[in-house]
């Protein structure tokens, strides 16, 4: 654990992970159904699908927020178990649609939660916050504010900063832009792609928007009813759809009608 913290500021070792025949049931329903997937160190992937297709649950399984009923989740070749889950969580930055910022803490206090627990000195926390504010285009003056005093876009930027504070090798984003208006969303898509290229981490983005997925990630994993339907590039999905559903999903992306 401590070794990782010591190297946190340096470029971290990229980490890969894999799902091996993983099933997660809620009662009779299979939220994730016999999924086998591997994510190479340093790769950027998107999980796409309608809501309820199981893509968020995959992230939660990886973080140990859910436990697989069958199969194994491997993180850096280690199975996710109650013993390893603390280290795994600290090796992952996690951003959810609502931001997940704690309303009773200032932006800075939100950012400082984990670093302070890891006994970072205050000046290091502040320096890192300023550095990340620049990365995500956030005015440093906003660090003093509370989450409800920020716009939706600013909140997601802060959530991303919080996920990146300790420079974890893995970044997991669950519908990070889902609640934003189109202009902010567009702008943040640009920024996210730049950031993904700059930080060299293993990234998974969950989104129901194929265009967003394709813009952010070279690899698309299309899910339906807990199972992987197709795993490939946008070109694969377009030109060689695995089935009727994939073809319909691709066709359902609306562009502006010709002027």
């Amino acid at each position: 654990m401590n070794a990782r913290h010591a190297t946190a500021a340096a470029t971290p070792r990229a980490i890969g992970f894999a799902f091996e025949g993983v099933t997660r049931r809620y009662g009779a329903q299979r939220a994730v159904d016999a999924v086998t997937l591997a994510f190479a160190p340093g790769s950027v992937s998107a999980l796409v699908g309608s809501s309820g297709s199981g893509k968020s649950t995959l992230l939660r399984l990886l973080l140990g927020l859910e436990i697989a009923d069958e199969g194994r989740v491997l993180f850096d070749q280690q199975p996710v178990t109650p013993d390893t889950v603390a280290d795994i969580r600290r090796a992952c930055g996690y951003v959810i649609q609502s931001g997940g910022l704690f309303p009773h803490l200032s932006v800075r206090a939100n950012l400082a939660l984990l670093p302070r627990h890891l006994r970072w000195p205050a000046d290091r926390i502040d320096a890192r916050a300023v550095e990340l504010a620049a990365l995500v285009n956030l005015d440093s003056a906003l660090l003093q504010r509370y989450p409800h005093q920020l716009s939706g876009g600013q909140r997601q930027r802060v959530a991303l900063m919080r996920a990146l504070m300790t420079d974890p090798p893995v970044l997991l984003l669950d519908e990070p832009l889902g609640a934003l208006d189109p202009i902010i969303r567009h702008q943040l898509q640009d920024e996210l792609r730049t950031i993904f290229e700059a930080i060299g981490k293993t990234v998974i983005v969950v989104t129901h928007d194929l265009a967003e997925a394709a813009f952010l990630a070279p690899r698309l994993v299309l899910m339906r009813a807990g199972a992987v339907v197709q795993d490939g590039s946008l070109a694969d999905l377009r030109e060689r759809p695995a089935d009727e559903f994939v073809a319909r999903f691709v066709a359902a992306q609306r562009s502006l009608p010709p002027a």
């Binding site: 927020l65 603390a86 280290d87 996690y94 959810i96 704690f102 919080r162």
Partner: peptide
Amino acid sequence: PALRDSARALGLPAQVRLLRIELPL
């Protein structure tokens, strides 16, 4: 629950989550 999960996903131990997040909320 989203906030509770966010705190867990940060990798904070239970007692820190309790004192810093859950009790204040």
